[in-house]
Design a protein around this nucleic acid. Structure first.
Length: 562
RNA sequence: GAUUGCGUAGCUCAGUCGGUAGAGCAAGCGGCUUUUAACCGCUAGGUCCUGGGUUCAAGUCCCAGCGCAAUCACCA
């Protein structure tokens, strides 16, 4: 190689749009001409923009206005200034602050520059007057681009129009942005770009930031609630040699050193139950499950679930726990949205005060007041279908009429459940959280049958806004029945299912050691966050939802067929 | 996996019956010391998702592919 390779390939510069080129030119100018480091360094003593806004004091502002006007008049009249001090050294009661943020608006008026900064707490204007800052600071202020991150030292005042702002004493570049951001006014609407490049979404759309802040607070509240009830938070394997605990297709991966396949877990259930065997009385886990299924508005292949088990509890224990948890979360959400809309005494805030939490969800207004609605499976089934679950002939006839596969051959209970999902769930009031209780045992292999009515499993499912939020069970702790049910379930598996399903012998051994009677519960956290933040898609509450790669070729591992 | 819709400048969007690619904001240059989607003048900016086809002529019509969205299927 005889040609020296330039630091920056020429081709990059050629391909760049004029927008990027303009920003790169400014980057060079900062370094070469202004001798400024464009990417900043540690900064202590920063306060949030919202906090700086709260430090505004009208009296201090007015006093400062009077003092500087007097000084200007004196200078204009040629009279000697009494104090002899320049304006910048007059007493000034306005609070001094140091703030930083991303530039989201920029107006260069010639000898004064206005810019809006944004941080997670909100937006705040900064004003840079040529007569009040050093020449470097002013030059920086003039050459700002939308997207740059700067810090400002100055005093909190306001403009003639009443806009609270920081009047800069100095301006420092903290990070030059080289990538053109989306438009300042319309923001970023393209759902695809919002999900693929969430960082742009977050800085361009403050609502997005609010949703994920809310998600974080919700998770904190859940942990506080569970901890308060004496539950211990644990973490169990997400890579398992057997994927059990749910009838879902797992993702398969491979451990090189051990030379063995591994499954991403579809549920933590079998491990959490082992902990009950081990002696933990109340355990919960909040973590990811992975299911190799389709993607839609309420499904992401990896999703966050809460699972909780309480020794010596049952499904009624878990119902009270769940109802209390979700009610509490809804009250908090209603209160914080009421606080957000502050002074306006709208319906929501009034209801929050009276403990009647009502939260909007799309076109619905969901009422989370206690108690949630309850209905039994068989009651709902009969109401929807017009015949009871035991009427096998009617079940088969209706299944055939609905063109359900295997209407004549399948186990009647499986048909019952198909019919239930098609017809009965639609009867539930989407605006009222509803517990559906007492499912057929035949479709609940990990659930203890009701004593005295073996056909019914002590299980409920919670539905809100038409979504299944989570189930709960009185757990089965008879090892022999458990083995029989799991074996029976395996026997019904098709060819594909049998490649990833097998009997978890160690789990059965654990049950033989002995698990106390227990209640268990699972909650889909993403769906719950959707409800509490009025988000219509699960992708709006997952920071980085799964997207197909674009442009780059897909990796095709061996065995990749079809 | 199926069906339908969408893909045009950095962003938000127009683009008529198939006839030279448009606007606002953003960008560059100039002006302006209190702006509030600032304003005024000038300038530049396009793989119309990709690849084929029909046609004298395709952003527009047809076919295939890619991505996204909605609905469905899968899914304790």
């Amino acid at each position: 190689m005889t040609d020296p390779t330039p630091d920056v390939p020429e081709s990059d510069a050629v391909d760049e749009s004029v927008l990027v080129a303009a920003r790169r030119a400014k980057l060079l100018r900062l370094r070469d001409e202004l001798k400024v480091e464009p990417f900043g360094s540690r900064l202590d003593g920063l306060i949030e923009l919202a906090q700086a806004r709260r430090l505004f004091c009208e009296e201090a502002h007015l006093a400062r206005e009077l003092a500087s006007k007097a000084a200007r008049d004196a200078a204009a009249s040629g009279a000697p200034v009494a104090s002899g001090a320049p304006v910048t050294q007059l007493p000034d009661a306005r609070v001094e602050v140091r703030v930083a943020g991303r530039v989201v608006q920029h107006r260069d008026m010639g000898k004064i520059v206005f810019a809006w900064l944004r941080d997670a707490s909100g937006d705040l204007q900064v004003s840079v007057s040529k007569s009040e800052v050093d020449s470097l600071s002013f030059e920086l202020a003039k050459m700002l681009d939308y997207g740059d991150i700067i810090s400002i030292e100055g005093r909190v005042g306001r403009t003639q129009r009443g806009e609270v702002c920081v009047w800069a004493a100095s301006v420092t570049m903290q990070c030059k942005s080289v990538e053109p951001p989306p438009g300042k006014w319309h923001g970023l609407h393209d759902a695809e770009v919002r999900y693929r490049r969430r960082y742009v979404d977050m800085s361009a759309n403050p609502e997005t930031m609010r949703v994920f802040e809310a998600r974080s607070r919700i998770l904190q509240s859940i942990r506080r609630f569970m901890d308060g009830r004496g539950y211990l938070e644990v973490e169990t394997p997400m890579m398992q040699s057997l994927a059990g605990g749910a009838a879902a297709r797992p993702f398969v991966t491979h451990h090189n050193a051990l030379g063995m396949p591994l499954f991403m877990r579809v549920a933590p259930e079998l491990y959490l139950k082992r902990l009950l065997v081990g002696g933990m009385r109340r355990v919960y886990e909040i973590n990811r499950n992975f299911r190799n299924e389709g993607v839609d508005r309420s499904h992401n292949p990896e999703f966050t679930a809460l699972e909780a088990y309480e020794a010596f509890g049952d499904y009624h224990t878990m119902l009270e726990l769940t109802e209390s948890l979700i009610h509490g979360l809804a009250v908090e959400a209603a209160a914080s949205s009421a606080a957000a809309s502050s002074a306006s005494a709208d319906a929501n805030s009034a209801q929050a005060v009276t403990g009647q939490p009502r939260l909007p969800f799309g076109d619905l207004s969901i009422d989370y007041s206690r108690p949630f609605a309850r209905v039994t499976y068989r009651e709902l089934f009969t109401r929807a279908l017009g015949f009871p679950v035991e009427d096998t002939a009617a079940v088969r006839a209706k299944a055939a009429a609905d063109h359900i596969e295997g209407a004549g051959t399948k186990n009647s209970w499986l048909l019952v459940n198909e019919l239930f999902e098609r017809h009965a769930e639609a009867l539930l009031d989407p605006a009222r959280p509803t517990f559906v209780l007492d499912y057929p045992s035949a479709i609940s292999p990990l659930t203890r049958p009701m004593r005295g009515n073996e056909a019914i499993a002590e299980r409920w499912d919670l539905f809100i806004a038409g979504m299944e939020i989570g189930p709960a069970y009185t757990e089965l702790n008879d090892p022999d029945i458990q083995r029989a049910k799991l074996t029976e379930q395996l026997a019904g598996a098709d060819v594909e299912e049998s490649t990833f399903r097998s009997l978890d012998e160690d789990f059965l051994t654990a049950l033989q050691v002995g698990m106390p009677p227990a209640g268990g519960m699972g909650l889909g956290i993403d769906r719950l966050v959707m409800l509490l933040t009025n988000s219509q898609s699960i992708r709006d509450v997952i920071l980085f939802p799964l997207m197909r790669p674009v442009g780059a070729s897909l990796a095709t591992p061996q065995g990749g067929t079809e």
